[in-house]
Amino acid sequence: MLGKPTYRGSALILPALLAIGLVLSSGCSSKSTKARYQAANAGSACHAKAMPTAGEGGLAWGSTLQIARQKSLHNCMRYASRSGGTPNTCKVVLADCK
């Protein structure tokens, strides 16, 4: 039987193209090694917690006690309003530094 000769090289073209595509796209898909957020503000030694009379409160870390208190008040107002509480009644109930 004389027929068309088969070329083994054509069977390798598709896997080779897929491998090249994976190699080229792997460089683009890697994420930045820099963390989006610092791990719980690793250098922050102070924390504060604020609570409203009704709803959820807020906990925050900061490099100083004043920053931690301010962040916790803002978090408290945001979470209290989302949970149906009273954001205007937020007060810092705990503030401490290591």
Rank of each mutant, 00 (worst) to 15 (best):
M1P: 10
M1F: 10
P5S: 12
T6A: 11
Y7E: 07
R8W: 12
R8K: 07
S10Y: 14
L14W: 07
L14K: 04
L14P: 03
I20G: 07
I20K: 02
G21W: 05
L24V: 13
S25D: 07
S25T: 14
S25L: 14
S26H: 12
G27P: 06
C28M: 12
C28H: 11
S29R: 12
S30M: 12
S30N: 11
K34E: 13
K34W: 01
R36V: 14
R36A: 14
Y37A: 09
Y37C: 08
N41F: 10
S44M: 07
H47C: 04
A48L: 08
A48N: 09
A48Y: 02
A48T: 07
G55P: 03
E56H: 06
G57R: 00
L59I: 11
L59K: 05
L59G: 03
A60K: 02
A60E: 09
A60C: 07
I67F: 06
I67C: 02
R69P: 00
Q70I: 10
Q70K: 15
K71I: 04
S72D: 02
L73S: 03
H74N: 15
H74S: 14
C76L: 07
R78Y: 03
A80P: 03
S81I: 01
S81H: 04
G84M: 01
G84T: 04
G84E: 05
G85H: 00
G85M: 06
T86H: 04
T86W: 00
P87W: 02
N88E: 14
T89F: 02
T89Q: 06
K91M: 01
A95T: 01
C97Q: 09
K98D: 08
